[in-house]
Design a protein around this nucleic acid. Sequence first.
DNA 1: TTAAATTTGTACGTATGTATG
DNA 2: ACATACATACGTACAAATTTA
Lengths: 233, 233
Amino acid sequence: MTADTPLWRQIAETLTAELANASPGDRLPSEARLAARFGVNRHTVRRALAALAEAGLVHARRGAGVQVTALPTDYPIGRRTRFHAALEATGRVPGRRVLSVETQPGLAEECAMLALPGGSPLVRAEGLTLSDGQVIGHFRSVFPVLPGLAAELARGEGVTRALAACGVSDYTRAWTRLTAVPADALLAGHLQLRRGEPVMRAVALNHDPRGQPLEYGITHFAGARVTLTVAPD
Amino acid sequence: MTADTPLWRQIAETLTAELANASPGDRLPSEARLAARFGVNRHTVRRALAALAEAGLVHARRGAGVQVTALPTDYPIGRRTRFHAALEATGRVPGRRVLSVETQPGLAEECAMLALPGGSPLVRAEGLTLSDGQVIGHFRSVFPVLPGLAAELARGEGVTRALAACGVSDYTRAWTRLTAVPADALLAGHLQLRRGEPVMRAVALNHDPRGQPLEYGITHFAGARVTLTVAPD
DNA sequence: TTAAATTTGTACGTATGTATG
DNA sequence: ACATACATACGTACAAATTTA
C-alpha cells in the first residue's frame, strides 16, 4: 500500500474493500467520478476496474455503469458432514505453538459471532498449528471471557483441554466456511511461504451443547501441506 | 473479424492462431515491433497481449520479453465440441456447462477409485460450474460405463438426471478432500484467473446407496468467488 | 564490473465511437 | 433528441527490470 505499489492496484484494493459493504446489482460511481475522487486519470481507474472485472466482482456495460456482479458464492457441501484435518487420520503428531493470549475488547464482527454486545471483552488467542514439528497452519480465535481461560490457553495444551478446565465439558462445530486465498506478507512469514501462494482459509464457529457460541476462529492452512477431508458421519 | 471487431481483438486472435506453431518458452517480438507490424499504437498491442496473458497463453516479464507459456492446442478450444446450455443441477450447484463427454480407457488411479480393473473403459465428463452465469469452477469426472450414460451426460441435463436415466435413482458423497493449489495455465483460462492465483481443489467420490462407486471427480473452484460451507446436520 | 540499450510497466492526455437511459 | 457512460485508439513521457555490449 506504499508508494511502490501501482496507483491502479491501490485503487483496486480500496474498491475491493468497499465492495464488502455492497450488494449484487449496486452501481459504482462513474469512471469520471472515481477518477476525480482518487485524483488520477480516467485510464488509471479503468485499469483498476479491469482488475475487479477480471476477478469477477464487477461487470461493466457500455452506456450503463459498472455493477457489482457477485459476492463470494456460498457453496454448501452437505449436511451430514464431519470436518477433520487429514493429519488426524494419518497418524502424525499434531501440535500447536501459542504465540499470544490477550484479553481485549472484541471487534464488532467477533462480538456478533459470539452473540455478545459490541465492544465486549474477549479472550484472543493466536498461534501455529504443527504436524511433526512442521508448521502447517496459523490460527486466531476469540472466546468469551471465562474465569481462568486465558491462563489455560496460554499453557498450550489445546482448546479442548483449556475449555474443560473452565468447566466446559464439550463443544461442537456449528459451521465452517472454506475458501482459497493468497497469502499476505504476515501469513507468508508464519507459514514459511511466499506472498501470494495459495492458502486455505477456514472460518469456524463452535458452540456448546446448548447452542451457546464458544469460539470464533480463523485458521489459515498452507495449501501445499494440508488436505481437509469432509466425510459423512 | 470484420471492421466492427476491435483492433486489439483481431490482433489477439491473429497472435493466438500463430501460437499454434510456437513452443513453450518461445519469445514473441517486442511490443514495439508488433505495433509496427500491425500498424497500430503500442497500447493496442498491449491490450491484445493482456488478453493472451489472461488466457494463460503468454507471460510477460519486464525487461525480458513476452514468452509463450502454453500451447493453444492444450487449450480447450480444440477439444470442446460445443457449448451446451447450463441446466438444472444436482441441487447444490446452480448451473453447469458440459464441455466434453468421452468414453476412454481410465487411468490407473481412476479405475482404482471406481473399484474397476485397470484399463477399464470409463465415461469422462468435463465442464464448468456456474453461478448466475459466472464461472466459479471447473470439473472433470469419470463414471463406470453404463448403457446410455455418455449420451445422457452429453445432453447437459446434469449428472443426477443422467444417472437417473440409466436406472440409478440416488447417489451420495462418500468423501471430499480439499486443498488449496495455485491455478495452472489451463485452469486459469477456464476460471478467468491469472496463473498462480489460489484455487480450491475438491476431490470427491460419490457412490450409490449400496456403496458402489459411481463418480470420481476433481473440481477446481475459483478461490475468490467460492466459499464452501460445511455444516453438521 | 559497468554502462548502455532494450523491453515491459505505469500514468498521463486527447479524441471519437457506441450503447444506455 | 439529448446527456451520460463505457469502449476503443491514438499519442507522449518516464520508471523499472532485464539483457547486452
